[in-house]
Amino acid sequence: MSSADTTVEPDAVEAAEVPVVDERREALLASLVEALGDAVVGSHIRPLDDLWVRVDREAWPTAAATLKDMGFTFFDYLSAIDWLPSPYGRDMDAQEDLVVSGAEPKVPGPVEQGYAGGDTRFQVIGRLYSIPDALGVHLKTDLPDDDLRVGSWTPHFRGANWHERECFEMFGVEFTGHPNLVKLYLPADFQGHPLRKDFPLLSRRVRPWPGIVDVEPMPGRDDNEEGDGE
């Protein structure tokens, strides 16, 4: 891996004529592809900022072990993303919101994933960091809807223990090989997985938020100088 230099180079990004090439991250991606082979199914680099790599579900623990050998010994976090657009819209139900912000009415769109692509509704995302090189890498993996299971990172990174427990109770993702996969935050009799998009916030169902504009305009003014929700 190349030598460590700081990642703060704001001037280089401004020069839009020459596309910026982030050599360190490209080299890291190349060595990952070399180590994991076909398991790397997608990637994305934001130059001088970050690297996203999507791997196969079976290769999820191996990817962690490989990165750990490469010097990424700091465990940052592990969580999941549910890419289903919320069937409840943004829960901003008032008429004024549509007028002020020009928002579209609530029609949930298709499931669209973010960086490094994806094919499924649920994706597990984890981040590892290398302190000597000051480089971080985001790892993502797809989970099929009917089989929300993936290998655990706890043999390689002990900090993943609690993160995986939280992911389990919030999304319903099972981590095979986890020593103690029980609820972490929620009381024992809580039903449902709260961070899934189809879990409603009942207070907002019962009483919708009154809206962004809740300040009367000054007399004589008819536009929305005050109302921007700050």
């Binding site: 709260p194 916030l201 009942l202 207070s203 907002r204």
Partner: peptide, 13 residues
């Protein structure tokens, strides 16, 4: 009254 977390799933209002 629950405060800023009035719509949370785990807060007593």
């Amino acid at each position: 009254c629950g405060g800023p977390y009035w719509d949370s799933y785990s807060v007593t209002k």
